[in-house]
Amino acid sequence: MSPGMRPQGRGRLMDNPRTRVFILLAPVVTFFVVFNTIPTLWLLGLSFYNHSLTSGMPPEFIGFKNFVAIFNGKNSIWFDLSRTFTFVICGVTFQTLLGAALGFLFWGSKNMPGRRIALTLLFAPMVLTPVATGTFFRFIYDPTFGVLNYIARDGFGMAPIDFLGNPKIAFWAVLAVDSWMWTPFMTLMTLAALGSVPKAELEAAEIDRVPYLRRLSLVIWHHGKFIMMLGILLRTIDSFKTLDLIIPMTKGGPGQSTRLVALELNKQSFESFNMGWSSAYAVLLLLISIAMTSVFIYVLNLRRRKEAEE
């Protein structure tokens, strides 16, 4: 630009820090508004209507009736919520513990032969489609010709186990598959968290002969907790909306024993096409998700806040 020339049009706007922010944010904000905010507001509006796509009738405004029906336990949704929380808490806890253990194992064995192959194999379940995984495991679990029962029967002389047909076992059988799929994710997050720990601090702690558990809490957890908590948060949200694994395995059965909230929401909205009631249900689930996320973020920021106060 020659001296004395002033930037014109877009160039001038980009030079201004105030307008530059808006220009740079505009595409993502537009995307967010169009594909997130408007549908969410639409969802919120629809939750106050009685609207079934298959009735052929126009939507009817019914105020809070859908929410009242939910709080009165329509379609056994409190059972679904309680089952879903059990699924999330048990699943995420197990996956975090096992994933972290595996992460430490791989972190501490960097020179192990075949480490890369082992890691690749470990991560394989995570990249499979849940529907395909569910279908595979339905066959693996089959009591008549499934491979698991074949081994149990011919290898150990056990009676056939009806993994997905027994309501006492089915929930845990599905949870086991979910853990098989997603423990590697927590391993990955653990490795990422461990990778974020400064080597110098670790070496200093080692030289100072700080006990391992204190090293874990003062150095490793201090630096890696954000990534670990992020992993737990992502797994919690993902686990809360588990659907595509259960559909091919049990479709929520036997009875209602594996019916999680996402399954019921899917049924009401995309099988029964009760758009009003489903919207109210979705609003409730959205609020629960926001509450859970807020708790995680609060916990994550607790120490930072304490430090700021000090």
Binding site: G165, N166, P167, G252, G253, P254, G255, Q256, S257, R259
Partner: peptide
């Protein structure tokens, strides 16, 4: 759901 719950002893 009902029939499935009954035949599986739920």
């Amino acid at each position: 759901e009902g029939y499935s719950a009954f035949v599986t002893d739920q």
